[in-house]
Design a protein around this nucleic acid. Structure first.
Lengths: 106, 106
DNA sequence: TTGCTATTTGGTATTATAGCCAAATAGCAA
DNA sequence: TTGCTATTTGGCTATAATACCAAATAGCAA
């Protein structure tokens, strides 16, 4: 495996890793319906606001979200709506698992 | 967030987490071209065979790969070729990042 | 300025992940 | 059986991720 190929997989892994957490998937799902501020997301998630803020920072660092400060609030937006195709793809893996009685859902 | 919703995101996160490693992405990419045994993958990756074997076990546990033993070799196959749409999606996030001079590639 | 609210950052404990080596297991062949 | 090869598993260490609390920062308003 040459260095360039490796670098490409590392870059891809960084994006995927940023999505690899239930709370962050929830955030992406919510933001696909429109921007939200940290407080709104924190209420929905029910964790400490600092925890939510750090999850948002992870997604932003990966280039999945962007933020804009308006007054006291910071609003986060999905910058790459294509990310939503992730969900379809993952769901189809889950369905395949379910068919093979290897479901993680239930 | 109700328990069922949470369970769905946790199930999705497990699949995504299994993909969130450069070596495992490489494996998935290779297997998209056809089945390979552990030895072949180990040669390409250049890590310890036990390390490769553990990566394969992670992907298998997530329901992304299946294995079949034939003689001394264990052959691994992608059970969900849809997983390849991941790559397109991730690449488009990377392109967006690059456009915004936030590229992780270079 | 002071005070209030929204958010981020720092510190820390806990838990999970990754990689290697060594040992165990499985299958074939002599 | 013994020996050889392919693979997995166990043990270990090092590194990274997560979540909370507390403290710092930023912006508005009085």
């Amino acid at each position: 495996m040459d260095a360039q190929t490796q670098a490409r997989f590392e870059a891809q892994a960084r994006i995927i890793k940023a999505m690899a957490h239930p709370t962050r998937l929830f955030i992406v799902d919510q933001l696909s319906k429109g921007e939200k501020c940290v407080f709104e997301l924190t209420e929905m998630i029910g964790a400490d606001m600092s925890t939510v803020s750090k999850h948002l920072a992870v997604l932003k660092a990966a280039g999945i979200l962007s933020d804009s400060k308006r007054g006291l609030q910071v609003y986060y937006t999905l910058c790459c709506p294509c990310v939503m195709t992730f969900f379809n793809c993952v769901e189809s893996v889950l369905r395949t698992n379910a068919e093979q009685h290897l479901s993680f859902v239930e």
